[in-house]
Design a protein around this nucleic acid. Sequence first.
RNA 1: GUGGCCGUAGCUCAUCAGGUAGAGCACCGGAUUGUGGCUCCGGAGGUGGCGGGUUCGAGACCCGUCGGCCACCCCA
Length: 429
Amino acid sequence: MTQYRAIRGMNDILPEETPLWQYLEQQVRLLLGSYGYSEIRLPLVEQTELFSRGIGEVTDIVEKEMYSFPDRNGDSLSLRPEGTAGCVRAVCQHSLATVVQKLWYSGPMFRYERPQKGRQRQFHQVGVEAFGIESADIDAELILLSARLWKNLGIDGQLELQLNTIGSAETRTAYRAALVEYLRDFEGVLDEDSVRRLDTNPLRILDSKNRSTQRLLDNAPALLDYLDTSSAEHFQQLQELLRAVGLDFTLNQRLVRGLDYYNRTVFEWVTDALGAQGTVCAGGRYDSLVQQLGGKATPAAGFAMGMERLVLLLQGLGDAPVTANPADVYFVAAGEGAQKLAFQIAEQLRDQLPERQLLVHCGGGSFKSQMKKADKSGASLAVILGDQEVSDGTAGLKKMRHADAQGRQQTLLQSELAGQICELLKQEG
RNA sequence: GUGGCCGUAGCUCAUCAGGUAGAGCACCGGAUUGUGGCUCCGGAGGUGGCGGGUUCGAGACCCGUCGGCCACCCCA
């Protein structure tokens, strides 16, 4: 029984899983680079106020999910529950938005929630943000690059794009009033959470999972009818751009986001392969956030993707796209002299083959047990050194998993070893 | 925060009217002298999450607690 456990909801990513994470991160990095986005690295901790002002005081994230604590000087700090607020803060602080900025970041986020499939208390997001562009083309680009990432990862078949617009602040004020007026009449039949939201955040009622609430909404006023003309045009342009490149999407009028800063475009990539946490990537436009956080008015749009959820999708692919790297050469060394010799030869070989994985056996043991380790390492070649080789200047070189038992092992001079290994590895590619 | 299911070796799990625990995989060693993969033999490894209760006796029953999973909620 282990004495210490990781904090609930904060999981270790074990060596077995890291190759898949590295693969995912690499694909993300390449793709974002190809669209001209630059990485920005941000602190995990910010002033609590940045989040309450940015995300919204009455959102669940701020109300009950933040890890907040007083700093030693009494300031209230919080572990970031999302990345956009901090990114906007950095953009303002360093006056980055004097020109168009296309940025991305990745790292852990923290929310105090009950863990379940696809949901941790410490989880990882990659966020992508574009500052300084008001037109719908950047909305389209953000969506297109995410679509391309799914394709590159081979998970595009499992994802569907849902799209909506929530218009301007005025749109929502007017619509909110109409929606509340409509729903008040059904207060008796609404589910408990939706009743509460009538006062706090009525738009969130739209994406309630409650079936009877959803039925009530069938006859509710539609946000589209309250849309201001420029938002309507913006939305129209976005759809045209997406259609122009043949990207499928579903209009979902009940799609609203849980963070207050969004306006106009909102979108989600959803899957039914992950149980209840089906949103893998989501975002939208947030034109007033920069100004709201003290910067110059700057239009902006962005999205975030949940890395754990993407990893789950990749793992579900069956054919694991990545596995652990097998070794190339394993040095079996029995005896003190052989150990020294193995290190010498291996170090020399590392100069010539920096890309190859060379393992020198450590920890002693019989030839037999060392050979077992060599086999398990996946190495294609084993170098065998013992007292005899030390004294006569030779080395055994064995091709592991070689069909022909006869030609499997050769004895050669130590001076020939490096050249022969290079040659054999080159043959294998 | 609420609810359902679950908690036995590193991992996956079993056993039994309640009588103080097993298998497979993994690990270690051996099967002729210094050599892997297959097979065979052997070994190590568990205060049965923790605490309390019922009982002559509990891993098995009851209560509590902690933890896990899933769902609500929330959201990436």
